[in-house]
């Protein structure tokens, strides 16, 4: 436990010391979302900005008013344009991740050129890894689908109202933990690719799996603790928002949500940094140099 705390602590310190990459990722996340929000904000503005009826959405959140707004012929909520943005961010992170891991592995300040050179170097390798990851999670998704239909059937067929619900909760948790285990394995493969400049992506997966399985409880516990912190942050932010933020305090809501999103993104970076630290301490050859 003590050594896990050490790795987690060192991971957190690296995220803190190299916070520039986190801020960049967050800024891109925000910027792209802002772009995706512009059409909706413009359409909402046309309906709401000069209407007294908008008051029902300012000092409270009146659900029927919101429903009427969503149903209005102008269709102000532009889902298609907004949905494009997460895909762009996904592509961005696929590119960005190689640079982030290289920075964490070296734990020093990179020039812009160095950083983007690292991003570019690992992009295709991470792209191939992504395809393998999508294949690897198929059994988990099938498990989730099967157990979902099972719990749905129980929810309807069982006289016990709670049975279906609890089966759903437990199986969803299992599916999430399985997903996290697969992610842990592929993060390990990414760490290996970056630390050892491994070019054969499929070849990197096997030792990564062996490494992951060899210290699975330890590594899984590390990821689990960070995930727990992320979810606790979500619950705490929601609680603060419901309890303390008045409906008309839009600025505070904005700051709170952005603070939470930065924290959430930070916990993912924390997992990556901790895994790099662990890999360097326990798996990397001693002669390994910064690429």
């Amino acid at each position: 436990m003590r050594s896990r705390r050490g790795v987690l602590g060192e991971g957190a310190r690296i995220v803190w010391r190299r916070q520039r990459v986190l801020w960049w990722a967050f800024a891109v996340n925000l910027l792209l979302a802002l772009l995706g929000t512009i059409p909706t904000a413009a359409a909402l503005g046309k309906i709401l900005d000069r209407s007294l009826a908008s008051g029902a959405l300012v000092d409270r959140f009146d659900v029927p008013t919101f429903a009427e707004l969503a149903m209005s012929p102008a269709r102000p909520f532009h889902v298609a344009s907004a949905a494009l943005f997460p895909l762009l961010f996904f592509a961005f992170m696929l590119f960005f991740e190689g640079g982030v891991l290289t920075v964490y592995r070296a734990d020093r300040k990179f020039t812009t050129a160095e950083f983007f050179e690292a991003c570019g170097r690992f992009f295709w390798r991470f792209f191939r890894l992504l395809i393998l990851f999508l294949i690897a999670i198929v059994p988990v998704l099938i498990f989730n689908r099967v157990t979902k239909s099972w719990s749905d059937r129980l929810a309807v067929d069982s006289p016990n109202a709670l049975l279906g619900f609890w089966v759903q909760v437990v199986t969803t948790l299992i599916a999430l933990l399985l997903l996290m285990a697969v992610r842990l394995w592929f993060d390990m493969a990414q760490a290996r690719i970056v630390v050892e400049d491994e070019r054969a992506v499929r070849k990197a997966l096997w030792p990564a799996l062996k490494l992951t399985l060899r210290r699975f409880p330890w590594l899984f516990g590390m990821y689990f603790e960070i995930s727990l912190a992320a979810w606790a942050g979500l619950v705490a932010s929601f609680w603060v928002w419901v309890k303390w933020v008045r409906p008309e305090w839009v600025g505070v809501t904005f700051l709170l949500t952005q603070g939470f999103l930065l924290f959430w993104l930070g916990t993912r970076f924390w997992q990556r940094a901790s895994e790099i630290v662990w890999y360097l301490r326990h798996a990397a050859p001693p002669s390994n140099n910064i690429p």
């Binding site: 925000l30 979302a33 802002l34 929000t37 909706t40 904000a41 909402l44 503005g45 709401l48 900005d49 908008s54 008051g55 959405l57 300012v58 919101f66 707004l69 909520f77 907004a82 409906p247 008309e248 839009v250 809501t253 904005f254 949500t257």
Partner: peptide, 12 residues
């Protein structure tokens, strides 16, 4: 613009 800002913040 308060209502627009509020909903846009949620949407964002």
């Amino acid at each position: 613009r308060r209502a627009t800002r509020k909903l846009s913040t949620y949407w964002l």
